[in-house]
Design a protein around this nucleic acid. Structure first.
Lengths: 229, 229
DNA sequence: CGGGATATTGATTGATTTCAATGTGAGTGG
DNA sequence: CCACTCACATTGAAATCAATCAATATCCCG
């Protein structure tokens, strides 16, 4: 568990010019994180960094799951992303973190000083290109998310979420969701009630099964995908 | 009009480590675009590149306004961004463009081969860091947009849009919108009717005035800003 | 002075939120 | 081991906001 290598996962295409080039471009980041000391253990719901704090470190998930979120002035909470093992967070930031990061469940993370990474990037083009590639990946993810939150019924959002989680966590058709309904709701910009209702509706339609509230069996991925369109 | 310098505008903080460093980091991109030949003239509503086409070039707006959008399978259109003079587009892409780019009004753009930019970035850290900074800016813009489209009433969306456009185009309180109501609607994920109704409602509330349908006077920016929260 | 695109306004419908109550499951202490 | 409790989740009824359907108005241009 400890000191497991951080592998940067790409959700899509590299920002430019061919996958091979970009994959190798990301390696130096992996190496940078490997230089880190002992992983940090974070208890469920504990904060890793807070919105507005000076952004000193970037992090990589080793085990567990991390969520980044913003809390709006009206009390609403918007979750920006769920980070799984191998994924990096805290890199998008100015001088201050724009999000709060918390552990969804007991987790371990590694970290690296952002100033060191920046210094590296000044002289090492591979690192700089890796950072670009990472930002571009995130950009694409967010563009898709924008579509989903813009035009996207509750069903489409939930279906998309299930497929996303399935694609990221398992090869089988059974997903164990590490996060609460509230987390899902805040990620999809829905209410907890709507998420719950939608899941039961999908169960009714025999598209999914819910053996336990956090265990989802995708019986009909094709139908789920069709809900996205 | 022709060969006007492309200045990369930052909407927010640089991706890391201080504004000064990043501003200078972006200069090489400016230079790269300056190497370009004669600007391309694009008529209103003409396509600059299409979703799915090989992404050979990146572009900078010299004059006019450009919109990038996706058309969904259900016929809906989602506008991703409006690009004003000095801004760059077409850089976020894999091998294929993820969006269609069109001129909102008669415009001129300059362009540069992406492969050349990539080659430059391989050896010139300043260019690579500039590309990172650009992606990070875009990332922040999109994160804010995600919030808006997630939780955000029609009023909040329209108010936010007016403030955004005002901030980008004018020093005064009068904004001349270059795009149609349909464009605004597709940008904010609303219907044209809702945009229209919301504008008239804001007029009623004496927060804005509408001398002409595309000319908006922001009488009460504070109230508009409060609608965002 | 048409004529077509663009924009506004009105009436109705529908999906999601909100408010409210009930159900379920895991952990604790008697 | 069972009852209790608290957090989490589901279900129901009503309210709300934006979408839809439909008509009218305005502007620009030939």
């Amino acid at each position: 568990m400890q000191n497991q290598a951080i592998t940067v996962r790409s959700t899509g295409q590299p920002p430019g010019f061919g996958a091979a080039a970009s994959l190798s471009a990301r390696r130096p980041l992996t190496d940078a994180f490997a230089l880190t000391g002992a992983p940090l253990t974070v208890a469920k719901d504990a904060e890793i960094f807070g919105q507005g704090e000076p952004a000193e470190y970037a992090y990589g998930v080793v085990s567990g799951v991390v969520r980044t979120h913003k809390t709006l002035s009206d009390g609403h909470r918007q979750i920006n992303a769920f980070l799984l093992p191998g994924e990096i967070f805290g890199l998008d930031a100015g001088d201050e973190h724009r999000f709060t990061a918390e552990a969804v469940c007991d987790s371990t993370v590694v970290f690296i000083k952002r100033s060191e990474l920046a210094k590296l990037a000044e002289h090492d083009c591979d690192v700089a290109n890796g950072l670009w590639a990472l930002a571009a990946d995130e950009l694409r993810r967010l563009q898709d998310r924008t579509l989903l939150l813009g035009h996207g019924s509750a069903q489409e959002r939930v279906a998309s979420f299930l497929l996303e989680m399935a694609g990221r966590t398992t090869q089988s058709d059974t997903v164990v969701l590490p996060m609460s309904r509230q987390d899902i709701a805040d990620y999809l910009s829905l209410t907890i009630e709507t998420v719950s209702r939608t899941l039961t509706a999908l169960g009714h339609a025999e598209v999914i099964r819910l053996p336990e509230s956090r265990t989802v069996q995708l019986c009909n991925k094709a139908a789920l995908a069709r809900l996205n369109s």
